[in-house]
């Protein structure tokens, strides 16, 4: 069974009337807009700090550059939960679109036919696993092997 499709709330979408589904879609659209705006803001701040660090480095002010990079890291770390929330909402919104299509069947119909189908991010638990997968990306400095 696939995690997202095991969720009663998600399965319940199939029984909802179109009007209620439209309402849920609208609410999700608003949420995604807010999350994306928040994410863009943090990204913009992070890029500003990166630019400042670059400028400081070129001027030979290494300590100041380090400080700016610390600020960059802070923005990066703080953007992680927002990114996770954005991914979760976007997945749900996209799934709602697919589930609204005439002829949609829950993928478990195929489970007995093909073992171990992987539905990408839908295969992981919407909260814990998704969060864990996304949170591995918090430290680009370490992952890129870069030291200022």
């Amino acid at each position: 069974m696939i995690s997202w499709f095991s969720d009663d709330r998600i399965r319940g979408y199939l029984k909802l009337p179109r009007r209620k589904l439209d309402r849920i879609k609208k609410d999700l659209d608003e949420k995604i807009y807010d999350q994306k705006t928040n994410l863009d803001n943090r990204m913009s701040f992070a890029k500003d700090f990166a630019r400042k660090a670059d400028r400081m480095l070129k001027r030979g002010k290494e300590s100041k550059a380090k400080e700016e990079m610390k600020n960059f890291e802070l923005e990066l770390t703080s953007s992680q939960p927002v990114l996770s929330a954005y991914v979760r909402s976007s997945l749900e919104r996209s799934l709602l679109d697919v589930m609204s299509m005439e002829g949609f069947v829950l993928p478990d119909v195929l489970d007995e036919l093909v073992d171990g189908i992987d539905y990408g991010l839908f295969s992981c638990n919407p909260t814990d696993e998704l969060e864990a997968i996304l949170s591995k990306e918090v430290d680009p400095l370490r992952d890129l092997g870069i030291e200022i």
């Binding site: 994410l39 990204m43 992070a46 890029k47 990166a50 630019r51 660090a53 670059d54 480095l57 550059a65 700016e68 990079m69 960059f72 990066l76 953007s79 990114l83 954005y86 991914v87 976007s90 997945l91 996209s94 799934l95 697919v98 299509m101 002829g103 949609f104 069947v105 993928p107 195929l110 189908i117 992987d118 539905y119 990408g120 991010l121 839908f122 996304l134 990306e137 680009p140 400095l141 890129l144 870069i146 200022i148």
Partner: peptide, 30 residues
């Protein structure tokens, strides 16, 4: 440092890519 700013942008685009690929698997199964 500047390329790290770009790396952050890449992270968001890659997330969107993962979302789209995941949706594709559901469409494909249907």
């Amino acid at each position: 440092p500047k390329s790290l700013g770009t790396a952050m942008e890449m992270r968001v685009v890659k997330s969107d890519l993962l979302i789209a690929k995941s949706v594709l698997t559901v469409l494909r199964s249907n």
